Computed example of a mutant assay.
Amino acid sequence: MPFDLDKLCGDDLFGIQCLPYGIFQPSDGSAPRIGARLGDHVLDLFGMFGDAYLSASALNPLMEQGRGTWNELRGRIIESLERPRLRDLVVRNARPLNDVHLGMPFEVADYVDFFASEHHAVNVARLFRPGTPPLHANWKSLPVGYHGRAGTVYPSGVPVKRPWGQSASGDGQAIYGPSRKLDFELEVGFVVGRGSPIGQPVTVDDFDDYVFGASLVCDWTARDLQAWETFPLGPFTGKSFLTSISHWVVPLAALDGARLPLPPQDPVPASYLGGEVPAWGLDLALEVAINGHAIARPNFRDMYWSPAQMLAHMTVNGARTRVGDLFASGTVSGPREDELGCLMEISKNGTHPVTLGNGNTRSFLEDGDETVLTGHALLPNGLRVGLGEVRSTVA
């Protein structure tokens, strides 16, 4: 046996409890196809099972099969790992990660970004709008969001080219040039695997039937461009230049054990944001590092709005979902100084630079900086489910 399968199955982050999906291309130049990560290997699922949709170069054909197939496939993978008589099948179709090329996991149909952390919303408001109420009147009645650009969602590893655009000069006039305040936003994204008819909202209780899985997301933001253009219609060129996602989509079933009650919501949300199942969040421990130095460790459990509420609000007006829709949480920030999910908050809009472990300081990202977002779900039995990473360098 070329590797220890038992050890791989018990991997701390990417063992049998995780099995995230992605797209890989073997080093022999054969066509990209769907794989499942196991430790430091990827399993060739088409080679193992032969289903036509597993030979696709994106997860969309798998997602189109529906929740029954999602659960069945995960069950077949787990059975192959647990039953000795099937282990030869696994060994023949396991490829070392350092011997494959990882690609974009799915074709993005639409992209929506939310603003679901109360801690982040309050912190940013105090920086952008000092002396005014930190939350707009609508913030606690609905999950605020905006439509981004599906065409600029790229996988981990694609460099971040510093965007150019308009920002404010010292005398309040517009100037054109490269952003001087390039920032990351640490987020969690959810991938929709089922389409809905136009005019038919998706309820919070339908979440499990529609969402295929979760992925780490970095919402790159040019804060100076954003500040100049945000009012009256919200984010545009300050965010649309690039959004980065992990190579891996963690199936929703792998995150079941990480669900926990949502923090109290006051006032009580509108009826369509409630459901028979109490609102739930996810216990996801996240981290962001710049040039190898960790600067923040927020947790997704501190979010005000739940993933199911985001999806319900996204479709409440009858907007349809499509296979491959991506919606992200917005910056994940917690109540403590070491739990802030972007440099805008950490550096107080550049007035308090953060010191990295090597003594260098950063107010915002500089050319050549490498930002790495990582995370994992915490399960009650002590196991962890890895979310992969989003790694990008400022070009």
Rank of each mutant, 00 (worst) to 15 (best):
V100A: 05
R67I: 08
L54G: 01
A58W: 05
D40G: 07
V42W: 11
L43C: 11
L97M: 14
N98Y: 07
I34W: 01
L62P: 04
A56I: 01
A52T: 04
G75F: 12
G66M: 07
D88C: 04
G39I: 06
P61I: 09
P84V: 11
L62I: 11
F46R: 04
N98K: 10
D99G: 10
G47Q: 14
S80P: 03
S27L: 10
S57Q: 02
P61A: 08
G35D: 06
P96G: 14
L89S: 05
G29M: 13
G50I: 01
F49M: 02
R87I: 01
R67L: 09
A31F: 07
D88Y: 04
R83Q: 15
D88V: 03
M63Y: 10
P61T: 09
L102E: 02
P26K: 12
V100P: 00
R76S: 08
H101F: 05
F49Y: 10
D28F: 05
F24A: 14
L102S: 01
Q65R: 15
G68I: 02
A94E: 02
D88W: 02
F46A: 06
D28S: 09
A94F: 00
L86F: 15
R95C: 10
P84D: 14
V100M: 09
R85C: 11
L102C: 07
P32S: 12
F49N: 02
A36Q: 06
E64K: 04
S30A: 15
G50S: 07
T69A: 09
L38K: 04
L86N: 15
R74V: 13
I34A: 02
L43I: 12
D99I: 03
F46E: 01
F46H: 12
T69W: 02
T69R: 10
D51P: 00
A36C: 13
G29L: 11
G103H: 12
E64A: 08
R33S: 04
D99C: 11
N93K: 07
G103A: 08
A31H: 13
G103I: 02
E82C: 10
R92N: 06
G103V: 01
L73N: 02
N60H: 12
D99N: 11
D88M: 07
E79R: 08
S80E: 03
F24D: 10
G47P: 03
M63E: 02
V42C: 14
D44W: 09
R76F: 05
R33D: 00
V42I: 15
M48C: 09
R33Q: 06
D40F: 03
L45A: 10
V91D: 13
Q65T: 11
R67W: 03
L45V: 08
L62F: 14
I77S: 04
H101D: 03
L97D: 09
R85Y: 13
P96R: 15
